[in-house]
């Protein structure tokens, strides 16, 4: 891994997506089990232990590592599924588990001390102090940084820690600190933290009314689109609301993160790995995004210019066809 410009960590929502990511040039893939122990607990996604074992074999045979996300918060009185997920990840030969819950971290550190522990973005460790806390308490080897830091913040933070840092590079992103947002459950009763779902589809309704398309999450209107206006999924932090009497995307516009324009500063900041978001995405999407990033990183490593068509392809894949640097850019706050 040391000869890589930056390690490319790619989403594998299904066994097919795992193979697609590996084939397209992922250095590592991450996936989860088919239950509420992971933060992409959507129908038709995820792995059972046998599928994970086969996925690990496929990846390892091609020099790719597999991380298993067990990154929701265990239910009170019912930690068994979280413990079993960690046991199964170890048993299947995963290279690391990605954890957020203090209880799950504690369990993994005690029962599987030899299994690498990565701190999930859901733990929202946004400072050197917080990261050192998790390092000393649970021996984490890597932190996935919250999407609330500027490139300058990332550089300053990495200078104060001595474990690996992984940052989000591409895909959907919320504007709230991860793992600490209850908006989805406020409207639906189900949350990313506990159920592994944000704005679950069974709570979404679209209706033609007043000459436009209204979209609701639970009972609450998240947006209304005029005829011809492109729609967007009603993730609560991407909704359009009235504030001070004005309709506004109060939290953030529907747009996707893309860090291609700041790869060199992120590398200089000491970042170890780039994470592509999107375990809920299909095999074709994963294939395209991973291949594009593979090409970009290899060019970057060789000091070669980036091919313009690759940048255009990524933009076309972005949510709403719009890209942003999010919090990485100064002034986003």
């Amino acid at each position: 891994m040391t000869d890589r410009y930056l390690e490319l960590v790619c989403p594998a929502g299904t066994p097919a997506a795992l193979r697609a990511a590996v084939d397209a040039g992922a250095d590592s893939v991450y996936c989860g089990f088919r239950d509420s122990t992971n933060a992409r607990n959507y129908p038709g996604l995820n792995f059972d232990p046998d599928e994970l074992r086969a996925g690990v074999a496929y990846a390892h045979a091609r020099g790719c590592r597999v991380f298993v996300a067990v990154n929701t918060f265990a239910r009170a009185g019912d930690p068994g599924p979280w413990h079993r997920a960690i046991d199964a990840a170890a048993d299947c030969g995963a290279d690391a588990v990605i954890l957020a819950d203090l209880g799950a971290l504690d369990y993994a550190a005690r029962h599987h001390p030899g299994l690498r522990r990565h701190l999930s973005v859901q733990a929202a460790a946004a400072s050197a102090l917080a990261i050192r806390f998790y390092q000393e308490a649970f021996g984490i080897s890597r932190v996935v940084l919250p999407r609330v830091l500027s490139v300058e913040d990332v550089a300053a933070l990495i200078g104060k820690i001595d474990i690996e840092a992984e940052v989000f590079a591409f895909g959907s992103f919320g504007t709230m600190v991860e793992g600490r947002c209850f908006l989805s459950s406020y409207f639906t009763g189900r949350s990313p933290s506990c159920d592994g779902v944000c704005a679950p589809a069974e709570h979404v309704t679209y209706r033609e009314e007043d000459g436009g398309l209204t979209v609701r999450l639970g009972a609450a209107m998240m947006n209304r689109f005029a005829p011809g206006e492109p729609g967007a999924y009603p993730t609560p932090c991407k909704g359009r609301f009235l504030a001070r009497g004005r309709p506004t995307y109060l939290f953030d516009e529907p747009e996707a993160l893309n860090v291609v324009s700041v790869l060199a500063p992120l590398k200089a900041a000491g970042v170890t790995a780039l994470k592509i978001e999107g375990r809920q995405r299909g095999r074709a999407y994963v294939s395209k995004v991973v291949a594009a990033f593979r090409q970009i990183l290899d060019r970057q490593a060789a000091g070669a210019p980036l091919p313009p068509d690759v940048a255009a392809e990524l933009r076309a894949l972005a949510e709403g066809g719009r890209e942003t640097l999010g919090a990485y850019a100064k002034g986003w706050r």
Binding site: F73, A74, R75, D106, L129, F133, A137, G179, S193, C194
Partner: peptide, 29 residues
Amino acid sequence: DLACVQLLQGHRFVAGPLLNVFNEGALAV
């Protein structure tokens, strides 16, 4: 914010509602 715990150096504290104490494992920690 758990960053605080690193500054407390063993002093007693109140765990606020903004920490994610969803289960007895986290509570024990």
